[in-house]
Design a protein around this nucleic acid. Structure first.
Lengths: 285, 285
DNA sequence: AGATATGGGTATAGTTTATGTACCCATCAT
DNA sequence: ATGATGGGTACATAAACTATACCCATATCT
């Protein structure tokens, strides 16, 4: 079967499962096929997935049968929710908008500067080809009030939950550091690499963070958190690159656990604190 | 032009722009077309976007010209980064994997329980049709150690940056509340709605949070933050639903600004604190 | 009740897109 | 020099798709 048809059948199934129904016009709008073709697609879908489709003459709409069994996709809540976030105008243009009757919804607005496509493109090229590159970078350091050109040898990208970083060897400070992608205004001059990606120990080393429910919570609450995090014996281990450890601490608010009055704020705490602190100190050195 | 072809041309362009080059085999692998068809696609692309394509005989690979000008997509860094997060195994199956030579990359692991597709599907149905529904819900309340059936009238979904919530009228407490989607184990029995979505004041009302750079930072640093957040006159306003205000506070760590020693931790602070606190108090009532 | 709009089905002829097969060319590694 | 690789093209054939036309059932409007 051709790729296009496969996609349309998948689309039909997606709509049936998540929105409960579909019309010919939906297929026409989504894929720009003719009306007769949309009819054929629906007939074909009925052939391939017998019994999933029921035409409701009164509603003039195909509906999903009660015993609907997907065959072209495995239903996945995160996929739907990703579509939803998309529909919200979030990450723009990753998926087509496959949702017609999306529920009212909203996500937390996270304000931030956007990344220049040309900058990212050039950084990717440097990573791919093992070059160094100069970036016009706005550092947060107090000594550097204005952006300046810095040569770096990038080898990876990291996401801290809010932003993307370039992981790179800094030709000025002679060590591996993070550069916030959105603070790179422009790029120029590819050159020789300053270091091998393998030498970035903090990037390659991972630390196993042990998480446990906050002991300040009641026994019930602790067991609920244990379920949320899919813990076994009240523990779960998360492998985190040492280079990302600091962001992990911040993102999960693991640093403020004991300072805040309300344990609700911090569902989990680090169970292997001494080792964690040591790893963090190593990463921040 | 047919939808399938359009997609392939878009794919060619995507690869050219972000990865610098493409081969016939890439098209064959991605779309399952024949080798001659892939040749035709490349020829067609050259026709539609003259000068973008250069065949490097030595590398045996089509490469993007230096003056590459996209015509089938507008290059967008967030789109690429979304693909990247995808490739990482994140949200699974939203986009096809359009990346061949992705750079080494990693995102912060955020542990959490996954949402049941059937639960979400049933909740969506209730929202669409304006029903109430019973959910087998694990509350965090100390009085409710085990999950129990609760009737709710859901009308929207909200994302707090880490998880999705159902925004719904609670038939037990007789008010609108958030229900964490992943804590709904199962659903049953659609019924009459308990309230109109319009009555959920906290959902519909938004508060304009004024953000300013943390005054504890140096002037330089403050101006950098101002750029990061695209502020004008050192301020930016973010409209946040009152129902999401609490999560906004937590996510941006606006609550710990003054308690922590290092201003680096908190780039921005709330500039209209009294109004903010009032709105928050209203939302938490 | 009759007219009309809507949503869907199907048949036909013709076009576009794609396949398989075959054979050709240039470059690179051996 | 030889073969492997990556790409181009030609031809006949098959599949997919379009446009057009006409038919049916249901709901809504007057």
């Amino acid at each position: 079967m051709r790729w296009g048809i496969e996609k349309r059948l998948e689309f039909i199934e997606f709509r049936l499962f998540w929105e409960g129904g579909i019309n010919r016009a939906d297929i026409v709008d989504q894929f720009g096929v003719s009306v007769p073709q949309a009819s054929k697609d629906l007939t074909l879908y009925e052939e391939k997935a017998p019994g999933n489709l029921i035409y409701d003459k009164s509603a003039k709409r195909y509906k999903a049968a009660d015993d609907f069994k997907p065959v072209f996709m495995q239903p996945n809540a995160s996929t739907y929710l990703a579509h939803l976030r998309e529909a919200n105008g979030g990450t723009s243009g990753v998926t087509e908008a496959w949702l017609a009757s999306a529920p009212e919804h909203d996500a937390l607005p996270i304000p931030h500067r956007r990344v220049e496509a040309d900058v990212l493109r050039d950084v990717l090229k440097a990573v791919r080809e093992g070059h160094s590159i100069e970036v016009f970078y706005q550092s947060m350091s107090a000594k550097k009030p204005t952006p300046e050109w810095r040569r770096i040898s990038p080898h990876a990208l990291g996401n801290d939950g809010l932003r993307w970083h370039i992981r790179a060897f800094c030709h000025i400070d002679h060590k591996f550091k993070d550069f916030i992608l959105s603070r790179c205004m422009k790029t120029r001059e590819h050159g020789l690499s300053g270091a091998s990606a393998n030498d970035d120990k903090l990037w390659h080393d991972r630390f196993a963070v042990a998480l446990a429910p906050n002991p300040a919570l009641s026994a019930n609450q602790r067991s609920i958190i244990a379920q949320d995090y899919e813990m076994t014996n009240g523990r779960t281990e998360v492998m985190v690159r040492k280079a990302l450890l600091y962001y992990f601490l911040k993102r999960l608010r693991l640093d403020v656990a004991d300072k805040l009055d309300n344990p609700h704020e911090v569902p989990v705490v680090v169970a292997n604190r001494p080792a964690f602190d040591a790893a963090l100190a190593e990463a921040m050195a």
